[in-house]
Design a protein around this nucleic acid. Structure first.
Length: 83
DNA sequence: CGTATGACGTGCA
DNA sequence: GTGCACGCCATAC
């Protein structure tokens, strides 16, 4: 039984380049549609270089947050063509 | 085990 | 349209 964090990281790592998923979407795919809160929390404490957490945005269209800086996140998305 | 936290989401003023 | 408050879940301490 993988922990929710493990599932989330695996899903985020599967996000194709140039595409973005919302925390709610990731949480839903992880099996816990109501744990979108935990998704952000997990990525925040478990920022893994193998996980493109910058491809995870909020449902409002806002970039959300980024452990390395929200601004940096936007730049990366722009470079990938997701923005 | 219980409390506090957070990169959210929705609702209401 | 903007701002504040509440609710929600998993993880950390």
């Amino acid at each position: 039984m993988k922990t929710f964090a493990q599932k989330v990281r695996a899903l985020v790592a599967k996000i194709p380049r140039g595409e973005t998923l919302t925390y709610a979407e990731v949480a839903r795919r992880a099996g816990n549609p109501g744990a979108y809160r935990a998704v952000g929390n997990i990525l925040n404490k478990n920022r893994d270089p193998k996980v493109p957490c910058h491809r995870v945005v909020r449902s409002d269209g806002d970039p959300g947050g980024y452990a390395w800086g929200r601004k940096k996140k936007i730049i990366i998305l722009k470079q990938e063509g997701a923005l």
